[in-house]
Design a binder for these strands. Sequence first.
DNA 1: ACTATTTGGTTTGATGTCAAACTAAATGGG
DNA 2: CCCATTTAGTTTGACATCAAACCAAATAGT
Lengths: 152, 152
Amino acid sequence: MDDDTLIFTFFNEIGIVSQLSQAFLNRHLPDGLHSSHFATLNHLYRVGDGSTPLAIANAMQVTKATMTHTLSVLEKRELVQISSNPRDGRSKKVFLTPAGRAFRLEAIGEVTTAMATVASLFDRAELESSLPTLQRVRKILDAERTNRPSGD
Amino acid sequence: MDDDTLIFTFFNEIGIVSQLSQAFLNRHLPDGLHSSHFATLNHLYRVGDGSTPLAIANAMQVTKATMTHTLSVLEKRELVQISSNPRDGRSKKVFLTPAGRAFRLEAIGEVTTAMATVASLFDRAELESSLPTLQRVRKILDAERTNRPSGD
DNA sequence: ACTATTTGGTTTGATGTCAAACTAAATGGG
DNA sequence: CCCATTTAGTTTGACATCAAACCAAATAGT
């Protein structure tokens, strides 16, 4: 297998696993929540809230237009609260509401339960050992695309 | 890091790498071709043509409805040709046209060129060594979702 | 200070994807 | 043989996502 083929194969496999895992999430998240919403809630929880939409978009690797949409959905459900930034009239700040925190916990519970059977099939060490590779690949790809710089 | 966190982290990383690589493809594929179209052309080339839409959908891990759409785009561009199956009135057979083969080569060229700089940053052995893990994970996830059975 | 550029966010239009309902053909049990 | 079930594909309606055009606020260069 030459280098190009290896790379194609690698990314093809990544793409399929990603699709399957996202489909898994979408099937098991409560109340029609989409995996992108779940990821956003988790991000807000992890980094502490008050991030700007653009920062979140960069962290999630989606465009700011997409984030506008995602946040409007979350806001409509009252899982986040969006306030204008007194320091900068252009930007906004996003906060998890108590409902948002509760919902996140509930979602994690559901997913974890649903995952229980399948999780036991994974080799923990195997996943762990490929994490650094994934992170390196992510960094490289992220640096490559000059626009929309890295976040998180 | 407990097991659940590890798994979440793993799939999160997979998701981001997948999104970045797909975005990369979408940016560099010629003529507005989408990565899913590219993947479908490649699949047809690899398995030899004459597959049914459903078989392709399973291999690509998308629903048959999605495949109907993808194939109609490819057919409109005359990159594939779709004929009815004389053996089975319900199903169809998909063939790469000469234009489709040519287009695939062109696309591979473009992508490979675009990838040249970034590809040199990857550690070939590293990618190679994580491939089996990805394939195992894929198999597990694929088996889990009882509907829409595995292909390829 | 004033204009030009950059930056954060929204809007618009297009597209890919999915789930669910539907159609038509094949298969199977009586 | 006939009806019930399964199977392949399409249609419909919803939604996530993107690129490009747009607006408004901040910043910079002169």
